[in-house]
Amino acid sequence: MANVLVVDDSNSIRDMVSFTLKSAGYQTVEAKDGLEGLAKAQTGSFDLVISDVNMPNMDGIALCGELRKLSNFKFTPILMLTTESSTDMKMRGKAAGATGWLVKPFNPEKLLATIKRVVR
């Protein structure tokens, strides 16, 4: 089953995303900010990255840009989990190479339905 990297500075959101994915049979690896996410990204192979935008140390947009520089993340779907529905934020994510975005408030059913657009 697909292996997903979940990056969020909020423990509860991260736990929930991870829990939802696991209950649908995905495997997850968690990171608490962009820096940790980038480090963990290089320790395994991932089929999907779900990352928060607003995080300390390295935000989600920067993480996305960094990941795209890695050869094994060139085509990996990267979804930004954000409450910011503004077009500007989506454009910035896109420019950094994000695949798409998931808008909070976090809804487990919606998450599972939506990620089917990018992973098996």
């Binding site: 500075d9 909020s10 509860s12 959101i13 929930m16 607003n54 409450t83 909070k104 408030p105 976090f106 809804n107």
Partner: peptide, 10 residues
Amino acid sequence: AHSIKGGAGT
């Protein structure tokens, strides 16, 4: 604030 809003919505 952002995290609180996100979680509260959920």
